[in-house]
């Protein structure tokens, strides 16, 4: 009988699961780490070998986590197609093993991984757009995931029981308590992707594959606010100053302070921006971005 300790067994099996390569490679690497031979640790039967038994766990580890990523990044999976998506998802899982007990964090670095691993040296603009978009879509979907589980305004008495008109009036009279909605996130992208997102969502709704002739966005800065109203996801396009203003509010600045910080960053008059911001404030509240 083998005398492997619990710690040794667990280190060995986890190595087999998470290292790169086919099962033979994995077993070799696990042996190199722990000096454990498969047959000294795992029983074989007449029906199934020790190697096949371990492979159920090794294959299942990757398939399960790819499924989880496919669930969180369903728009991206639709856009890329299942085969290509699975290839990148598997590479991500092997490169960045999960460090959290929560699957919520599994996809946290996926957009960054896609941005870092996209093909380099492309000259053609259309091709460049094609390889840039996955990371952009992934960032959008990851941010959406955060919005959907964050604290929202649903239980905020002021935000839910006062009418929008009442809230607006209150804000115009006294805007010192204006805050960013806790579920608000702002992101900046290199492409205005909302139209593309709509096309992808339409394909998913119709259970169709992506058409060959997609209308792809042209590269230009895009500022988005993602939030939730009564548990419904909402996304809004922003002007640059609105993006900056909301960003400062998210960081904890008061509304008036955020106006000053934004004006300073944009090198514009604070008075001029205050006027624009006060005009926009009722709309921002109505959009679930700010509340009092």
């Amino acid at each position: 009988m083998s005398e492997h300790s619990l710690r040794q067994v667990q280190h060995w099996l986890q190595t087999v699961l998470i290292v790169r390569g086919d099962l033979d490679d994995k077993l070799l690497q696990a042996y190199a780490h722990d000096g454990v031979m498969l047959d000294t640790l795992i029983k074989s039967t007449d029906k199934i070998s020790a190697q096949q038994r371990v492979d159920i766990y090794a294959a299942g580890y990757v398939l399960r986590l790819v499924d989880c990523l496919r669930c969180e990044f369903s728009l991206l999976a639709q856009y890329m197609g299942d085969t290509l998506f699975s290839t990148f998802a598997k590479a991500f899982i092997v490169t960045v093993p999960s460090k959290s007990w929560s699957l919520y964090y599994l996809g946290e670095q996926f957009a960054e991984f896609l941005a870092q691993t996209k093909p380099q040296g492309i000259i053609d603009v259309a091709q460049q757009t094609m390889v840039d978009l996955p990371a952009q879509i992934a960032l959008f979907e990851r941010t959406k995931s955060e919005v959907l589980v964050a604290q929202g305004l649903e239980k905020n008495v002021t935000a839910t029981e006062l009418s929008i008109e009442q809230q607006m009036l209150t804000c115009l009279v006294n805007n010192t308590d204006i805050q960013a909605a806790p579920c608000l996130r702002v992101i900046t992208l290199d492409y205005p992707i909302l139209e593309l997102i709509s096309q992808i969502e339409a394909c998913i709704a119709k259970l169709e594959v992506m058409p060959d002739e997609l209308i792809l966005p042209i590269q230009q800065p895009c500022y988005l606010a993602l939030t939730r109203i009564h548990y419904r996801f909402r996304v809004w396009s922003l002007a640059h100053w609105q993006y900056l203003l909301l960003g400062f509010c998210i960081q904890g600045s008061s509304f008036n302070m955020a106006i000053k910080q934004t004006a300073l960053q944009l090198e514009v008059s604070s008075d001029e921006l205050t006027s624009d911001a006060m005009m926009w404030l009722p709309q921002a509240i109505n959009m679930g971005l700010l509340f009092q």
Partner: peptide
Amino acid sequence: CWTGFAGVNSHDLLPMPLTEESLKH
């Protein structure tokens, strides 16, 4: 079961060797 070791999480329900050491643990 165990699901991870040394900071890594497999998100699988992995089997334990059924030993006196495991039981005590």
